[in-house]
Nucleic acid binder design. Structure first.
Lengths: 257, 257
DNA sequence: ACGTATATTGCATCCTATGCAACTTGGCAT
DNA sequence: ATGCCAAGTTGCATAGGATGCAATATACGT
């Protein structure tokens, strides 16, 4: 393990949590937060600045720099499924007015790779790049349900099933049963299992060989639309997921599951 | 300067240029490209993987991971000017059908911080996070023209005025004259100075105290719309920039320039 | 099952990263 | 304009981490 690389990445993570957007952090603040000497932080910042990962906004404050944005966006833009799905997400958002996500599986977590905010100003956990647990999110259930049996078992064995709300699934048996329901009806539901008061439904996006490579979801707080109201939107969600799948090369007659 | 941090960042940069989207690179490939031993790369990857900056897509290939996307997007989302300007960009894009950018100044370069693609499928240099020279881009000219005289002079002195196309400004005197024109008419033009066949117009976005903090641009290839056609859209661009400025707290009567 | 390619790890060594202290620079109050 | 103090930078000695090599382990293709 590379200690100074770890420290450099920790500097980036601290700068991302500035709390004072645009203002950044001073060298002394970073040193205190990371528990290393300010001369060490000064040298790390020098390296990060040279590579445009960090920049100084005045003599005293540091913020994240454009190299980070460029690497991240370049990589996201190259994700085929994200590119082909984007017009579908925008359209679903336009028609329903609610927050739409696209997520993919990374090891045993769901990662948000695109997001279109709903008409209403709603604060949610999700953010592009952010990982979420698969046992209690609609996208997570869809992604795991869509993997080969062996991989599903391996993932299920690795999960910690931590409780997030009163309705969270907290054991492997209940999770397996839920995955069966997801496979059977072709979509998943998150009944405020991950975040209190937030309901989601998600459906799979397949690529040419039928494999589930992403999940599209609709998320909405219960105060705006109750669960029954959200379930009424499932046909539109399924249609959007099929459209995104078609654009990824999938045709329905290939489905064997 | 921190050598192993530099190497770790170089790994990230190499992975961003995979050339085979989604497929990633092997340990041996990275070692060859970076000129270091594969055991060194193995340890760097171990550290990057632990922090989710990198992930393995099978036993042999590495791709950029979600931590990068999360840091980048978290930070971009916190940029006030980007957040308030976004609906304005989307609206300008809807009304004109062309590619709209939002850029800010980072040292003596323009950085794209938001982008809405035009209706036509057009390949352009710009990408969120990517830096561009200020002497031959419309956003660059607007950003520099909008800085205090002392900073303008310092920036102008630092530029290398490298030629990009047949119409690029290549000396300081011509650049200063161009900045005067920009200040006088309130917008800038890029007459294929940065990229052949691509024309742009840009206008300033101000914050509450009148400082220019960003620039909005409209970009279009000459085959879709000639320069005269693009100039006819300047009133809509100016209106959009004023709307974005208003949302950033600027009111017109504060302008002294 | 076997051969080969690729990845990982133990180890010795070199060299880098570190903290400390001194020095420099910048901001602020007077 | 000046002085004081806070913050940032740098020289240096040292500790320890990063490195490459070689051996070993793992994975893939036939």
């Amino acid at each position: 393990m590379s200690q100074s690389l770890e420290r450099g990445l920790a500097v980036l993570a601290q700068l991302a949590q500035s709390g004072r957007p645009g203002d950044g952090k001073t060298l002394d603040e970073l040193a205190a937060e990371l528990g290393v000497h300010k001369s060490t932080v000064s040298r790390l910042l020098r390296t990060l600045e040279a590579g445009h990962f960090v920049r100084r906004v005045n003599t005293r404050h540091y913020v994240l720099g454009s190299a980070l944005f460029e690497l991240a966006n370049q990589s996201l833009d190259e994700l085929d499924v994200r590119r082909v799905a984007q017009p579908v997400l925008v359209d679903l958002n336009r028609r329903t007015g609610h927050t739409v996500h696209l997520a993919s599986l990374e090891a045993h977590e769901a990662v948000c790779i695109d997001k279109v905010d709903g008409r209403h100003s709603v604060r949610m956990y999700s953010r592009i790049g952010r990982r979420a647990p698969v046992h209690c999110t609609a996208v997570g259930k869809v992604l795991v349900a869509g993997q080969p049996a062996e991989l599903r078992a391996a993932i299920a064995a690795e999960l910690s099933y931590s409780r997030k709300t009163g309705t969270t699934i907290t054991d492997a048996g209940a999770f397996a049963a839920e995955l069966s329901r997801v496979a059977e009806r072709g979509y998943a539901v998150d009944n405020a299992e991950h975040e209190d008061f937030i309901h989601c439904v998600a459906a799979p996006v397949r690529r040419g060989d039928g494999m589930v490579v992403a999940a599209i979801s609709l998320s909405v707080p219960g105060v705006l639309l109750d669960l029954d109201g959200l379930l009424a939107l499932v046909p539109e969600l399924l249609a959007a997921a099929e459209e995104a799948s078609a654009r990824s090369g999938w045709t329905e007659k290939k489905t064997n599951r």
